[in-house]
């Protein structure tokens, strides 16, 4: 399949799942009624459901998935390590910590953008830490050990802050910050995420060429005129904006950034410049599918998205290990 055809198929799947996300929900609303309400505002209650409950959820599914898929593909390209994934290397956990702190200090209530900004700051700290620890090559062992350490630190600190909250409901939300959910989100959250999401994508877009050159090695890339320092800084900023804003509104959703690039790497031929857009669509497909699945499986339980993505993602992880062992033998 050509790259163009692949992207068309991915875009079609994203659009189809976006519609499914709009049309599937606990309230049984007919197809015609749903569309009538969404597009023309017919029927007060149904319009409210479509425009204020389902539409933001579907939009966030696309944005959160694309953010995680694209940043996963970019990190993997830069570190030349297939294990680099925002959830695994601790960037998501640190973003959660930032978000939790801004919520519990009352900063987010005083100033709405404080929530995504704090999550972004957390993601930035996580990304810088892992780059410092793993070094420019991102050797698998240091990357994973560093990631485990940062994830544990971020998760524990978030749990501590939530446990000390005067609000009795806060401690129960540790699961949300580690597993993620799109339940009961509103257009307010879409508005909070959108600017950072677009900035992150804009920062990431021009990096493809440099990342492609980097697949040949650092020396070769520098010889081709790629500024590694600048590439690295832009990449960290883009990842922080994408993962930070996604985590601020949806919690930490694992495995999307791992599974989306892996599913598509062979089909696009492995060049990061082609993989990043494909993985963005792939991530959107995974998150939308997971979010439709949680609503079909347990409509009244707010089953967390991380449960579904881990069920899909963990086998990929095992597959990676199996392949690494086979290659090693």
């Amino acid at each position: 399949m050509s790259y163009g055809a692949l992207m068309a198929v991915l875009a079609f799947l994203t659009a189809a799942l976006f519609c499914a996300s709009l049309l599937i929900g606990p309230g049984a609303i007919g197809l015609a009624d749903s569309l009538d309400a969404l597009l023309r505002g017919r029927g007060e209650a149904v319009t409210l459901v479509m425009r204020e409950i389902r539409l933001p959820r579907a939009l966030l599914g696309v944005m959160v998935g694309a953010a995680l898929g694209a940043s996963g593909a970019a990190l993997q390209g830069f570190l030349r390590n297939p294990l680099a994934e925002p959830g695994l290397i601790g960037v998501s956990a640190m973003a959660s910590l930032g978000a939790v702190i801004s919520l519990q200090t009352g900063l987010a209530a005083a100033f709405a953008l404080a929530l995504p900004l704090a999550a972004l700051a957390g993601a930035l700290a996580g990304a810088l830490l892992i780059l410092v620890m793993a070094g420019p090559r991102g050797a698998a062992l240091t990357l994973i050990l560093g990631g485990v350490a940062i994830s544990a630190l971020g998760g524990a600190a978030s749990a501590l802050v939530l446990s000390l909250s005067p609000n009795p409901f806060a401690a129960a939300e540790i699961v949300f910050w580690t597993m993620g959910s799109l339940a009961d989100r509103s257009m307010v959250h879409v508005g909070l995420m959108a600017p950072f999401f677009l900035i992150g994508l804009a920062l990431l877009a021009p990096l493809g060429r440099g990342l492609d050159a980097l697949t040949l090695g650092e020396d070769a890339a520098e010889a081709m005129g790629v500024g590694l320092r600048r590439l690295r800084l832009t990449l960290v900023a883009a990842t922080a904006a994408l993962v930070g804003s996604a985590t601020a509104v949806a919690g930490g959703i694992g495995f999307v950034g791992l599974a989306a690039p892996h599913l598509l790497r062979r089909a696009v031929g492995g060049a990061p410049s082609r993989l990043i857009p494909a993985a963005a669509l792939g991530g959107a497909i995974l998150v939308l599918a997971a979010d439709v699945a949680v609503r079909v499986i347990a409509p009244d339980r707010d089953l967390k998205l991380g449960v579904m993505t881990a069920l899909v993602g963990a086998p990929f992880f095992l597959h990676l290990i199996a392949r690494a062992r086979r290659d090693g033998a």
Binding site: G106, A170, E173, F176
Partner: peptide, 28 residues
């Protein structure tokens, strides 16, 4: 637990709901 959309579709005459507390935020 009742999904918000079911509550909206039920179109009650009166909604008796609490308000978030001032101190400490909770997603719930």
């Amino acid at each position: 637990f009742v999904p918000l959309e079911l509550l909206v579709l039920a179109e009650p005459d009166m909604v008796v709901a609490g308000r978030p507390r001032d101190e400490g935020a909770a997603r719930g």
